[in-house]
């Protein structure tokens, strides 16, 4: 159980790292899809079939939209700028070393704070359902919905769903406003 999750998470990390370093943007997007589809398997292992069925279709549609963006624009990544070329000789950019140093320091601090925070977390598999105890006990009689996630989403916490629908509508309006503007020719 936990071993499966660890394998899935390592696959996700590898996919994300390759997506960020790929030379071709199309292969970057395919590696990004590896992250999303591994998340589907993770949700299935964690006994969340609702999330799995939503994530697998969302990932497919996101992939289609990303590929359609790449078809309009370009596939090639930017040129690498790790080295400076002066008079035919290449030098390592000194700023990159400073960036790596700062990244290591920041990562150290973040992991330290994560260690402090996670002392209050329960270990995996042990969870005390505080609010959800009521939902699980009386959910079927109270809402009539056998699927507890739908019952929580549309009955107990309907305002969250209303806010979600509003955000979705606003995002669509934003996309239409951005893409439908007639550009001035430069």
């Amino acid at each position: 159980m936990e071993t499966t999750l660890i394998v899935i998470l390592i696959l996700m990390i590898a996919g994300a790292l390759h997506a960020l370093h790929a030379r071709d943007l199309l292969s970057a997007i395919v590696s990004y899809a590896v992250v999303g589809y591994s998340l589907v398997v993770g949700f299935l292992v964690l006994k969340a079939p609702d999330l799995a069925i939503v994530q697998i279709v969302v990932e497919t549609i996101a992939l289609i939209i990303m590929v359609s963006v790449l078809i309009i624009s370009t596939r090639e990544d930017l040129a690498k700028r790790d080295t400076i070329i002066i008079k035919g000789q290449s030098y390592i950019n000194v700023r990159n070393l400073a960036y790596i140093f700062f990244a290591v320091v920041a990562g150290f601090f973040l992991v330290y704070f994560f260690n402090m925070v996670s002392s209050g977390l329960e270990p995996l598999g042990v969870h005390e359902t505080r609010m959800a105890t009521e939902y699980i006990k009386n959910g079927v009689e109270g809402t009539g919905s056998v699927n507890l996630v739908t019952g929580v989403l549309l009955d107990y916490r309907g305002f969250d769903t209303l806010g979600e629908a509003t955000i979705l509508f606003t995002a669509v309006m934003g996309i239409l406003a951005i893409l439908r503007l007639k550009t001035h020719k430069i």
């Binding site: 079939p49 609702d50 799995a52 069925i53 939503v54 279709v57 969302v58 549609i61 009539g144 919905s145 056998v146 699927n147 996630v149 739908t150 019952g151 989403l153």
Partner: peptide
């Protein structure tokens, strides 16, 4: 069948 089986308005709408 959103209230009986996994799924619901979000998943079905995307499909």
């Amino acid at each position: 069948h959103g209230h009986l089986t996994p799924g619901g308005g979000f998943a079905g709408g995307i499909i």
